[in-house]
Design a protein around this nucleic acid. Structure first.
Lengths: 135, 135
DNA sequence: CATTGACCTTATAGTAACTATAACCCTTAG
DNA sequence: CTAAGGGTTATAGTTACTATAAGGTCAATG
């Protein structure tokens, strides 16, 4: 067994998550307390690295840190049904879709606005007019 | 001239922006300091109401409060070119599109995940596997 | 006239997920 | 030996609010 261990900076480079963020994750209990070198440096194992990558991937899907905390604890129970994980993914998908809907509406409205200005002064600007309340 | 004036709660009801939020906007200088009644209640005019609606509409397009601060100050100069406003709208559109892109990617990935789980236990779950690092 | 309930006031702290800063300690290459 | 580039801690700032506490005002009701 080669027990490689990483410092926080090394782990940061390997995972693309900044050292400060890694410490933050530890502080809020998303990562377990790291073991320490004699001089007090945090030391991380492969397992820590995996956990961190799990977090990064989940963040990439838009999960909140609280969601991820739950996901991790669900994922840790190898023998349990994965229904909980499933449900969380479904739920996240719904949330993403809802945000998509909002953003698409914004996009359309902004497009409409960019199209309606003919480049005069504020007084005659259709954009300002619209924002100010004209329908 | 009928100088109607609103209390903060009335303004809140009329605009759909909560009283606390209106006070907050005043505090950060997004709204001018409201005049006060004898007893110290804030009093608002039609102009304040318009300004607040402007803010609400801009928020609805995803502008940050800082952006809105700028928009308002641009919109206040009736004689100036509306190029600044134009630019801000364009820029906001870009931002929205960029967020859309990210969210669409999340949506696709989440869809893929929901599709790949066959409902067993964590140990065999393709979702957990994926989040844990399998490609 | 007193009281009740719905308003208003202020100040302060909490939220999410970091980022920035300060002030200090450790390690290693020249 | 010293300087650069790690690491450590604690604290405050960010965005746009929301929540809480502790109190003052106003209109209506008993």
């Amino acid at each position: 067994m080669s027990e490689k261990s990483y410092t926080v900076g090394r782990l940061a480079d390997d995972t693309g998550i900044k050292a400060v963020t890694i410490r933050y994750y530890e502080k809020i209990g998303l990562l377990p307390k790291a073991s320490r070198s004699e001089s007090g440096y945090r030391l991380y194992s492969e397992a820590d690295c995996s956990r961190l990558l799990f977090i990064r991937r989940s963040r990439g899907l838009g999960f909140s840190l609280d969601d991820i905390r739950e996901l991790l604890s669900l994922a840790d129970r190898q023998q349990d049904s994965c229904a909980g994980v499933d449900a969380k993914v479904e739920q996240q998908l719904e949330q993403v879709r809802s945000r998509l809907k909002d953003l698409r509406a914004m996009e359309h409205e902004l497009e409409r606005l960019t199209a309606c200005c003919e480049g005069g002064v504020i007084m005659d600007c259709r954009i300002v007019e619209t924002l100010s309340g004209a329908t």
